[in-house]
C-alpha cells in the first residue's frame, strides 16, 4: 500500500507525511452541557465502519494544515468529495 493523501495546500503526498485526526465529528459540543455519555461519545467513540468516511488529517511533514478528506477504509484510497459514496 502506498497511501497517498491530497493536501489542500501541497497536493498529493505520501501518507507518512501526515497525522490522522479521527473521524469527523463536527465542532466540540458545549462543555457545560456535556453528560459523561455525551462527552465519551464525542471523545472516544467511533463508527469504525468499513467504507467511505470523512476524516481529519494534519500535514505534519509539510505545511501544517488540518483538513478533511474522504477515504475508503477498505482500500485506503481517497474518494472525491463530490462522489456519491461520500453521502453517509
Amino acid at each position: 500500500m502506498a497511501f497517498t493523501i491530497t493536501c489542500p495546500i501541497c497536493g498529493p503526498r505520501s501518507g507518512y507525511e501526515f497525522r490522522y485526526g479521527g473521524e469527523d465529528k463536527g465542532p466540540r459540543p458545549d462543555p457545560a452541557q456535556m453528560t459523561p455519555e455525551a462527552w465519551c461519545d464525542y471523545v472516544h467513540m467511533t463508527d469504525s465502519r468499513p467504507g467511505v468516511q470523512k476524516e481529519w488529517w494534519y500535514h505534519r511533514a509539510g505545511c501544517g494544515t488540518w483538513f478533511t478528506i474522504y477515504r475508503d477504509t477498505t482500500t485506503n484510497l481517497e474518494v472525491a468529495p463530490d462522489s456519491p459514496e461520500t453521502v453517509a
Binding site: 485526526g21 463536527g26 465542532p27 494534519y58 488540518w66
Partner: peptide, 11 residues
C-alpha cells in the same frame, strides 16, 4: 505542539 493547538482550534 503545533498540531495539537491547530487541531483544537480547527473549527
Amino acid at each position: 505542539t503545533v498540531e495539537w493547538i491547530r487541531y483544537h482550534t480547527r473549527f
